[in-house]
Every structure is written in structure tokens, then in C-alpha cells.
């Protein structure tokens, strides 16, 4: 992955910063100094562009996800990618040493550094050692940092236990984040989460606040009597995405019978679902764009 990211970056950066990066990669390999590494990781923003997202080709993105499924540098800046490359070089060191330096970097990270550190987690060896760091990161209230772990990142679905996973999904809703960008949102759904989500929806309704249509996505495979009543309410709610969400829950293979009473109200959407024009992802995407 290091070689691939480096070759992609070299098509999008000037010779001078690339020379600077090469120099540091050589030092990391042959003459490592902790202070020099700190200077390089934090100082990358002084050498590479930090303001514009890289304009990457489909084939670049495909080769990245081919090598690390789910991982992406789409919409990232050059200094972000340079920092990721430095971390990958560090990850080739002894595991305990790598973890110690990683913790030091996290303990002193500014927001953009924290985003690099968390979004690179799926690339590092021994992920079991990184779970507690990632969970600590999800406790943040800084949106960019939370997003770096929760969204467009395969790490949580692959490594969080249910309790950590469920807290992250709930927190994503609290923070108004789009659930469709949480990788594994369907495969990691579970009954405990469905109950917690329904309870959260009841709280919101009691307070007269709107409930995100995406909240019902992880509930679709766990419809009990309570949730069936909730979905009937959603199907009758006049707000963007509500009826679509009810239709998507209805269309889940296990629900036709349980939700028979809402069939009529969701009927207009079933064809769209059948031909693939309406999915949880298209719904989440359009809500995010309009939100």
C-alpha cells in the first residue's frame, strides 16, 4: 500500500515536497529518530498542499480498494496522503514501538492529524491492538474526527465488538451523521441495536423532534411488535424520506407479513425498490445532499 500511495501522490505533487518525503522515508528505514519522525508527520502540511482534495482517477481509487477493501483516500488532500505514507513506513517497525509512537501522535494530534491517524487504522498490522484507540476516538464531539472513524472506514465493522459498534451507530445519529456511509451498517445490525434505536426514536418523538429515516435501516431485520408499530407511524409521516424508509423496511425479506398493514401506503415505492432505484444507500445519499 505504501508504494501504491506514493506512486499516486507523485502524480499529484511537486518535485520538492516529494523529495522531502523521500528523504524522510529513507531516514525512517535506515536512521530512525523519533523527533525527526514527529517533525515529518506534523510538518507534512508545510510541504504538501493542504487545501485541495486530490483529483484521483477511478483506476487509482480501484487499485486502492483492491488492496485494502473499504479504505479510500477519495476527497483527501496531498498532505493527508503524505502523512498516511509516513505512518505506513512507521508501521514496518517493531509492533510495540509502532504502537507507542502512534499513541504519542494521537495524544498530541490536532484535528487534521487525528483525521489521518483514524482513517489510516485499517492499513495497520495487529488491528486488535488498535480497537481501544479507535473506540476512544469515537467519544469525540469533533465531527471531522468522529467521521474519520465512523464513515467510509472499514475498521469498526471489522473489529468493534457489538457494544462499541452499537454506541458508534447511535452516536452517529446523535451527531446527525449519514448512516449509509458507515461500512457494514447492514451486516453488523443486531437486536440490541435495533431496540436502542427504537427507544431513541420514541424519545425524539416524545420531545417533538424529527427522527432520521436512516435510523430504521439497522432495525429492518429485527422487526418486533414495537418496531412494527413504529414503522406504521413512519409510513404515515410527511417528511422527506420517511415513507421511503418505511417501504425499505417493508421490503426486507422477513417483513412482508409482519408489516402487512402498511402495504398499501408503501406500495408506490415497491417498484422503485425492486428495480434498484430506491435503496438505503440512495435514500441516505439524497438525505445527506438535501440536509
Amino acid at each position: 500500500m505504501l508504494a501504491l500511495l506514493l506512486s499516486i501522490l507523485s502524480n499529484h505533487a511537486e518535485e520538492k515536497p516529494l523529495g522531502w518525503l523521500d528523504h524522510h522515508l529513507e531516514k525512517i528505514e535506515n536512521d530512525f529518530s523519533r523527533n525527526r519522525f514527529y517533525f515529518a508527520f506534523s510538518g507534512a502540511c508545510r510541504h504538501f498542499d493542504k487545501e485541495h482534495a486530490l483529483d484521483l482517477s477511478e483506476s487509482d481509487l480501484d487499485s486502492i480498494s483492491g488492496m485494502a477493501p473499504g479504505f479510500t483516500i477519495d476527497n483527501r488532500t496531498a498532505d493527508h496522503v503524505a502523512r498516511t505514507i509516513l505512518l505506513l513506513a512507521l508501521a514496518e517497525k517493531d509492533q510495540d514501538f509502532f504502537l507507542e509512537v502512534l499513541r504519542a501522535l494521537l495524544g498530541a494530534a490536532d484535528i487534521r492529524e487525528a483525521v489521518v491517524l483514524y482513517s489510516s487504522l485499517p492499513l495497520f498490522p495487529h488491528p486488535e491492538e488498535l480497537v481501544s484507540l479507535a473506540r476512544e476516538g469515537t467519544r469525540t464531539n469533533v465531527v471531522d474526527i468522529f467521521d474519520a472513524i465512523a464513515l467510509d472506514n472499514p475498521f469498526p465493522a471489522a473489529h468493534f465488538e457489538n457494544d462499541g459498534w452499537n454506541q458508534m451507530v447511535l452516536k452517529a445519529l446523535f451527531m446527525g451523521r449519514p448512516l449509509y456511509r458507515i461500512q457494514g451498517i447492514d451486516t453488523r445490525a443486531n437486536g440490541t441495536l435495533a431496540t436502542a434505536l427504537a427507544n431513541y426514536a420514541h424519545e425524539r418523538w416524545a420531545a417533538g423532534r424529527p427522527v432520521s429515516p436512516e435510523l430504521w435501516r439497522p432495525c429492518a431485520g429485527f422487526v418486533d411488535e414495537t418496531i412494527a408499530t413504529d414503522i406504521a407511524r413512519v409510513a404515515a409521516t410527511e417528511a422527506p424520506g420517511q415513507k421511503e424508509a418505511a417501504a425499505l423496511v417493508y421490503a426486507h425479506p422477513s417483513n412482508a407479513e409482519k408489516l402487512a398493514e402498511i402495504k398499501e401506503s408503501v406500495e408506490p415505492f415497491l417498484k422503485e425498490i425492486e428495480n434498484g432505484n430506491l435503496t438505503w444507500d440512495t435514500l441516505g445519499n439524497s438525505l445527506e445532499k438535501d440536509g
Binding site: N35, F39, S42, G43, R46, A104, G107, A108, D110, E113
Partner: peptide, 11 residues
């Protein structure tokens, strides 16, 4: 020991 973590940061 911790200063090198900070001095090259943005801003």
C-alpha cells in the same frame, strides 16, 4: 521530549 510533537504543526 514532547516539544518535537508540536513545533512543526499547522499554525
Amino acid at each position: 521530549e514532547i516539544l518535537p510533537l508540536y513545533i512543526c504543526k499547522e499554525g
